[in-house]
């Protein structure tokens, strides 16, 4: 498996959002391979396959049917197999409660879905450009919520 591209996964129940997401990466042209899943169950089924290709960055919507983002985050962080996976929360809201919870459970960054396509592209390129393995050590509560 060549590493000339970054493997990215998005779990989001909203079809429009999945489209914006893949379109944004298509337009960015930064060598990424994007896979999407419509809910938490589908995501976890995929990740739990022993031969699954693990993503570098996992974008998690919080509000999903069947298994929501927080539950997925919890399972992922309890399993050492996924230690290399950076988790970016990708949600419409940015309530204090959600930010607090996901930070405590080990998400790497919290992204509030932007309301323009241009901004979305900026955000995604910035997240992909970040070296999360290195950033993890400097993780702190103040810059957890991504501001651009």
């Amino acid at each position: 498996m060549a590493s000339n591209y970054t493997h990215i996964i998005l779990a989001d129940d909203d079809e429009d959002d999945r489209m914006f997401f893949t379109d944004a990466f298509d337009e960015l042209k930064i060598g990424t391979k994007v896979a999407t899943f419509p809910d938490g169950i589908a995501l976890m089924d995929y990740l739990n396959q022993s031969d699954a290709e693990l993503p570098s960055i996992l974008f998690l919507d919080l509000n999903m049917p069947r298994k929501n983002g927080k539950e997925c985050l919890k399972e992922i962080r309890q399993n050492s197999r996924f230690n290399s996976v950076a988790v970016a929360i990708y949600s419409t809201s940015a309530s204090e409660e959600d930010i607090e919870d996901t930070f405590v459970q080990g998400a790497n960054v919290y992204i509030k879905k932007p309301s323009s396509f241009k901004k979305l592209k900026n955000v995604l390129s910035s997240v992909v450009a970040t070296n999360w393995q290195y950033e993890t050590s400097g993780l702190n509560r103040d810059n957890f919520l991504l501001r651009l």
Partner: peptide, 24 residues
């Protein structure tokens, strides 16, 4: 109140995103 405001944001955000794409 919270849920209403929160859930209203989602379609609005999409409208705005589509608009921005149209404009672009």
């Amino acid at each position: 109140n919270y849920v209403a405001s929160h859930d209203l944001q989602e379609p609005l955000r999409k409208i705005q995103t589509f608009l921005s794409r149209l404009e672009d």
